[in-house]
Design a binder for these strands. Structure first.
Lengths: 190, 190
DNA sequence: TGACAAACTTACTAACCAGTAAGTAAAATA
DNA sequence: TATTTTACTTACTGGTTAGTAAGTTTGTCA
């Protein structure tokens, strides 16, 4: 018998990576098991169904995001530094490793994933948008951000372009994603 | 024996829809066959492998796009009307039918699709970007579009946000996509 | 009318998939 | 030390997958 160290956490880490690299329909319990050197059933012991595994990945990510934005190291930043921090999430350790964001990955396969997982994705996407919108409002009031229209719409545009930009980087290279981020900043600060 | 009318074209139409609704890993030859009332092997007769089917869908879409942009009804439009036409591709018959764009769908599953299909996706994405960039340059020179930075970067931002916006609409509703398009126009024309 | 090619069907394979039930080894607990 | 719980393995199921080989029907053309 092979014991996995920190089994649940290790499996969640692998599943999160696989979701971002291969998509929900692009990986199997066998992938995770063989990489960890255990059998399929060992994964099912911790996460009986693939839906539960997917939900656990997103739920953990949601909790992590709330911890981040409520942490003084982010909360107390100026609006433009907050935005830089947010862009950094996508630049560091996403585009460099050929990953796309969880939300984009699961929304492309939305019509083929279990309902419970769909709900989790919806919640995460709303939370990301809410924080972006609040940050945009804060920055516009402080006179750092300049844009026309509703903060909610600007937030939707920014998040969508980051999501699509990571996917574009897959086919066209990471410098394309950098161009998107630079353009976002130009459109927001100039 | 059941004969399919315009077999190849009908299969391509179905495959294109399925790619946009379920993704490459989310549909099978059996799906297509059963919906057409024929057997699996009938699909394999026309498209021996799934890679060939996928490539044919993208190639046809690329040809169609070149026909469109070289048609006087698009070519002779003013830059802002051209942009409206382009946005319309995404709004009409995409977001309304719960579809995402082919490029986004296949780039999310990029690491799990055959190489020949990857190349086709890359080519399509480059062609879309090239047309957008040229249109942005034309519009800026004409004084209709206003933006800072390189047209190539602005093109990448616009295309990424449309791509991501369609996916967002899956989880959060079509009005979110409309908000993205409206914001894009605001940022370009104001 | 006969030959041939196009468009299928039948019947199959080998691989993979998520998921389950029953058994085992080791660690925690009483 | 005995008992129970945790974390697995073994062995399996039923379903789905892309793909193939050989046979059949139908329309076209000489």
């Amino acid at each position: 018998m092979v014991k996995i160290a920190n089994s649940k956490r290790t499996i969640l880490n692998m599943a999160e990576d696989l979701l971002q690299v291969k998509g929900f329909n692009g990986f199997s319990y066998a992938h995770i098991a063989s990489e960890l050197g255990v059998k399929n059933a060992a994964i099912h012991y911790h996460f009986p169904t693939k839906e539960e595994l997917g939900r656990a990945v997103i739920k953990r990510y949601r909790d992590r995001f709330q911890l981040w934005i409520n942490n003084p190291r982010v909360k107390d930043l100026s609006p433009d530094k907050k935005m830089d921090w947010f862009f950094g999430i996508y630049t560091d350790g996403r585009v460099d490793e050929g990953k796309v964001c969880l939300v984009g990955s699961l929304e492309v396969e939305f019509n083929t994933i279990p309902e419970g997982l769909q709900a989790e994705v919806e919640a995460l996407h709303n939370e990301l948008l809410a924080w972006l919108q609040a940050t945009l409002e804060e920055g516009r009031q402080a006179g750092v951000f300049h844009f026309n229209g509703e903060p909610a719409s600007k937030a939707a545009l920014i998040l969508s372009s980051l999501q699509g930009g990571l996917q574009m980087a897959r086919a066209l290279g990471t410098q394309k994603f950098s161009a998107v981020v630079e353009q976002l900043k130009l459109d927001l600060l100039a």
